[in-house]
Simulated scan of single mutants.
Amino acid sequence: MNEEFTNRMLVVVEVTTARPDRPAYHAKVQVLNSRVVAEAKTAGWSVTRVAAADVTPADLSRLTADADALVIVGGEDITPSYYGGTTGYEGETAHFAIADEGQIALVQRAFALGTPLLGICRGLQIINVALGGTLVQHIDDGIHKNVDVSIDQILSTHDVTLATGSTLASSLGRVDISVQSAHHQIVDRLGAGLVAAAHAPDGLIEALEHDSAPIVGVQWHPEAPDSPADQLALLLAGLAAAHDSRTRVEA
């Protein structure tokens, strides 16, 4: 354990703790979310895990109020009304409007307070929507996720190019990386203050970050078991660095 991080509180915010109608999908999500928690604990963070759909938005705000940093992880599509979209699109999943409301509020509070925030997959999309952006509701090209396969094979491996000079490139130490992703929605219009920080080979945005706040989102899954071993650790270290920088400024 890295004692340097001890006593820093990280809150991992997932969608829900129960999907009785989709056990295979739920099991996959739990593997991914548990890896975020385990990696953070290994790094020395004190970790709290909260499911946004299982509490009210007010309770979610209260439960995360003392966080030194936040990670919003993956899950279902965001309710379209939050970004001006409509239902009935191809590939539509279940929606958890309470989770959407609570997580959007967390992003807006993190921006206002300067709390370091990492969004993973859906978490990136929540960041974008919370800051006024929109989403492309469906892509189905075999690059960003494997199609017509079981849930255990859904993660697609592909290259990503990080923007030179971006926070992500600094955190990961290089601009060309290999990632694993499994998403069918993507950023359309960027939210206020957000800039593209990475692109896939097809030109679609694979990461974003805020131009002044310590907010970063990646569309891929650094917590996937077959992702490069250091990706998640480096991103979590980036959260710690952002927290330390904020603490020095406030002191």
Rank of each mutant, 00 (worst) to 15 (best):
V249Y: 13
V71P: 10
R22N: 06
A197I: 02
P116Q: 04
R62T: 14
H95P: 01
L190P: 12
L63T: 01
Q231V: 00
Q103K: 06
M9G: 07
W220T: 02
G74L: 08
H243W: 14
H199G: 08
N146V: 07
V160N: 03
A43S: 11
L124M: 15
Y82N: 09
V50R: 15
L236Q: 06
H158L: 02
A192R: 15
L118G: 05
G173W: 03
G142L: 05
G191H: 11
G44W: 03
G88Y: 06
N146D: 06
K28F: 06
L232R: 07
V11A: 06
V12G: 05
I177F: 05
D68P: 12
Y89A: 14
L190C: 10
V71K: 11
R122H: 08
R174G: 01
L106Q: 01
I126H: 12
I215N: 00
V15H: 08
D21Y: 03
V136K: 10
D226T: 06
V13P: 08
L113Q: 10
P20R: 09
H95R: 09
L117N: 04
N7A: 12
Q103P: 03
T86S: 15
I72P: 04
A58E: 04
L135T: 09
D226K: 11
R189D: 13
D226V: 09
L190A: 13
I151G: 00
E92S: 12
E101A: 15
G85E: 11
T64I: 03
G84M: 02
V11T: 11
V147E: 05
A207H: 03
H138R: 12
I186L: 14
Q30E: 11
A43M: 15
E14T: 15
I186V: 15
T161R: 00
D159N: 11
V13G: 05
S212F: 10
A229T: 10
A196N: 14
A163P: 00
H138S: 12
G193R: 00
Q125T: 04
V36Y: 01
P228Y: 05
S245H: 11
A105D: 07
M9Y: 02
H221L: 10
L70W: 11
R19D: 07
D176K: 13
V36G: 00
T161W: 03
Y25L: 09
H199T: 15
G173R: 10
L131A: 09
V11P: 08
D141S: 12
A51K: 05
I215G: 03
M1N: 09
T79L: 05
S150T: 08
I143P: 10
A242C: 07
D159G: 13
I120C: 08
V187T: 07
Q180N: 11
R35T: 13
L236R: 03
A163I: 06
G84E: 03
Q103L: 09
T164D: 10
S150W: 02
L32Y: 08
A99V: 01
A197E: 01
